[in-house]
């Protein structure tokens, strides 16, 4: 599923970013990369732009960019699970 397919208030985990160089780096600088949690907050008219939340950052994306991000929607709706450590640096 793509980030652009999510509906308002849906949460998901990023599984792949199908972008190269510049765009990928830019997304990463906001923490939007594999393993990140995202939530769709709002869409503009015609879904031309999408507002998402990554961690506690609100981010605006164009649909074209959101289409390049593969996600896995969180199931079970409002179950609040503690965030898992994903490939964390050990020994901190």
């Amino acid at each position: 599923m793509r980030l652009s397919d999510l509906s308002k208030n849906q949460e998901a985990i990023v599984i792949r970013v199908n972008a190269s160089g510049e765009l990928k780096q830019r997304l990463a600088s906001f923490g939007l990369l594999k393993g990140a949690y995202v939530k769709v907050i709002d869409c503009s008219l015609g879904k031309s732009t999408i507002e998402i939340m990554v961690d506690s950052t609100l981010l605006a994306l164009r649909r074209e960019e959101a289409e390049k991000i593969e996600v896995e929607p969180k199931t079970g709706g409002k179950q609040k699970r503690k965030r898992k450590r994903l490939r964390l640096g050990n020994g901190l």
């Binding site: 990928k24 780096q25 990463a28 990369l33 393993g35 964390l88 901190l92």
Partner: peptide, 20 residues
């Protein structure tokens, strides 16, 4: 892509520190 690797490393570091 070393830039991507760097970004991933930094992201886990940031996440780890924030959690701690």
């Amino acid at each position: 892509d070393i830039k991507e690797i760097k970004a991933a490393e930094h992201a886990s570091i940031a996440r780890g520190i924030a959690m701690e």
